[in-house]
Amino acid sequence: MTQAASSHSDSTAFVAVKKLTKRFGSVVAVNNVDLTLSRGETLAIIGPSAAGKSVLMKCLVGIYGADEGTIYLDQDDVSDTNAPERPKWAAKIGMLFQQNALFDSLTVWENICFRQIELGTLSRKAAKERAVELLGLVGLAQESAELTPSDLSGGMQKRVGIARAISTDPELLLLDNPTAGLDPVLSNHIELMISKIATQRGTTVISITNDMQIARTRYQNLMMMHDGKVYWSGKTDDIDDAHNAHLTQMLDGSSQGPITMRTGKREDGIFA
């Protein structure tokens, strides 16, 4: 039950994480995590704050290297941040950061197509056209292109972050809380868009969320993390009512189960 997502053999796996451990000093942020996804599959990661979800994502995108274990993307070993295959993957992975991490030194459209401008793959004119097109896709007006990210509201910044993440037509899309801070209508719009990207372009999507409902309806796989470890993982279709009740209780803190909230600084709300 805990490894339902890894039913595919490793040779065909697009994302293959084996026994991944990442430490910060004495804190074990990610502890012996296994994760396998085929190309085009979608995965929602849920879990309480400080469960290691964001760190796992940053390991996948190449910000942190593995202390132990391995990360393979489409058979390329990218366990180390300096792995020779890493630069190639920078273009193939799009990531939305939890705090958006938009660049205040640039305009919105320069943010969205920063990579294309700096690497010279698009002229500035073409880059701007592409950015405006992406803005429309995430439901932002064309006028916001010339603003700086700090001029935008939190929800608008999040959408610019998503636009930047998908600007390179990535093969792997990593979204750290894509709908946090958005109203239900917008949140639905964004989730629908993510599903569309996954089905139409065959993009593999890994998304951190704290909404059990969204995770179950919009994603094929679900992984629950706690204290750096995988607590549950499997197909969302396999989640029956008993499972659902149990996992939901874990998330909303009403469970007396093995999850105890860590004390200390919480990010935004109880879950992050």
Binding site: L106, F114, R115, E118, L119, R164
Partner: peptide
């Protein structure tokens, strides 16, 4: 820095532009 890294931007460019 992390966001620039994840976009595959050179550190010198990230320093200068961001």
């Amino acid at each position: 820095w992390e966001a620039a890294d994840s976009l595959g931007i050179k550190r010198s460019v990230a320093l200068r532009k961001v």
